[in-house]
Design a binder for these strands. Structure first.
Lengths: 232, 232
DNA sequence: TCTTTCCCTCAGGAATCCCTCAGCTGGGAA
DNA sequence: TTCCCAGCTGAGGGATTCCTGAGGGAAAGA
């Protein structure tokens, strides 16, 4: 499992954020190495040979853009930039330097994971992130949701929620758990989850039975059908 | 049993609540250590190396958020926050993503146990939460109750009670004990327990023999069959 | 800039759950 | 047998939880 796990290199100077990212990636099954700045970058890249690098654009010393150019020139490593919201110029410069994608701070862990997967998949370093529950197919990387052969249009937030539910299919997830994992701590109103579940249901149930079940007083569970197993 | 029991660290300044949580976790088979504030936190973490930390957000001295950051920086410990209902927005807003779940006070011990297990399972530190008594299967993770292959619909409270009974199968539990663990009441109307046991029996015994036995004058015991103590 | 889409909030209504009450049942002792 | 009391259980009201349509504000796209 570990040997063919993708390798991710994180360079981020804010220690709290860096550790946070690191753990999120480790939890997701990646091999991770991290650094707070660009010192010794070439050596780390040489040794660790990351499949993807998550780089903060603003770094003390050499900027993330410089590191990205180094990667583009010397490796096949994909690049994922972290950038502040108002630094629009950074985005353009980032793509010029060979970035594969970028994420605007502040962001939710689920988004970073999704983007990382997408980048890895595009470069052929990861098998597809497809999840299936009954006749529902969620292609996280492609951002596609298909039920009974018919594509269903979902928004970015709906996709994150659906992915989280599908990945934990068969388990009850509390609303607070969903809020922390899908929305982060900016949101706290359980009704937010309810509203999104409601929207998802309307879209999903147009072509089939209910997949997102309410467990009153506990949370939601995604599963094939109401536990109607075989009777004797 | 103890050596592979998960380790839980509790930090809560209210002594009554802390002791309560501690006992509940110990009863559930965890190794527990607790503290009333963040002093010496790093040392405790270093020595005890908890799998999960239950942290009160509001603490004298350093807040639970600070402790959580320390954990993120130095360990792989999962975090479960305790917070007052009206403080959720204030205290958690702006906190960098990554905590695993939070529980709003006031809460019931059974819920804390359920959430703790969910967090541990997510990080692969715990075996599945399935309990079996005779042909009754209580799947706490899925929120499902199945008897003889047939699913049985139970409410959240019924599930908490049933889980508590099943986890302590073979042992006699007093009504006071049940009220404390399942409802969080110190002392209350025993009829509340009686009423719920009654409801559970009706649902469970539709498909089989009695599993929740009355021990007159003492309490209830869940077990496969009536132990025929002194017959003759 | 203008339009479209999306995200989140709000509030009313529906569903159902929780707990209480009161009458009943049955075991055990005198 | 009779009495007493712990335990059982159906009914119902208040409270909670959940669902969902509508709308404002913000971001994205044209």
């Amino acid at each position: 499992m570990d040997s063919d796990a993708a390798r991710v290199l994180v360079v981020e100077d804010d220690q709290v954020l860096r550790t946070c990212i690191e753990e999120g990636l480790v939890d997701a099954g990646y091999q991770v190495r991290s650094a707070s700045d660009g010192s010794g970058f070439a050596a780390v890249v040489e040794n660790f040979r990351p499949d993807v690098a998550v780089l903060d654009v603003m770094l003390p010393g050499s900027s993330g853009l410089t590191l990205a150019r180094h990667l583009r020139d010397h490796t096949q490593t994909s690049v994922l930039f972290l950038t502040a919201r108002d630094a629009v110029a950074d985005r353009l410069a980032g793509f010029d330097a060979g970035a594969d994608d970028y994420i605007v701070k502040p962001f939710v862990m689920a988004e970073l994971l999704a983007r990382t997967r997408a980048v890895l998949r595009r470069s052929g370093k990861l098998r597809s992130g497809r999840l299936q529950v009954a006749d529902l197919l969620v292609d996280e990387d492609a951002g596609e949701v298909i039920r009974a052969g018919r594509p269903i249009a979902v928004t970015a937030t709906e996709l994150r929620l659906l992915t989280y539910l599908a990945r934990n299919r068969g388990r009850v997830l509390s609303k607070t758990q969903i809020l922390t994992q899908v929305w982060g701590y900016e949101a706290y109103d359980p009704n937010l989850v309810e509203a999104y579940v409601s929207g998802l249901r309307r879209k999903l149930e147009a072509n089939g039975e209910r997949l997102i079940h309410t467990v009153r007083g506990v949370g939601y569970r995604m599963s094939e059908s109401t536990p109607r197993m075989r009777a004797s």
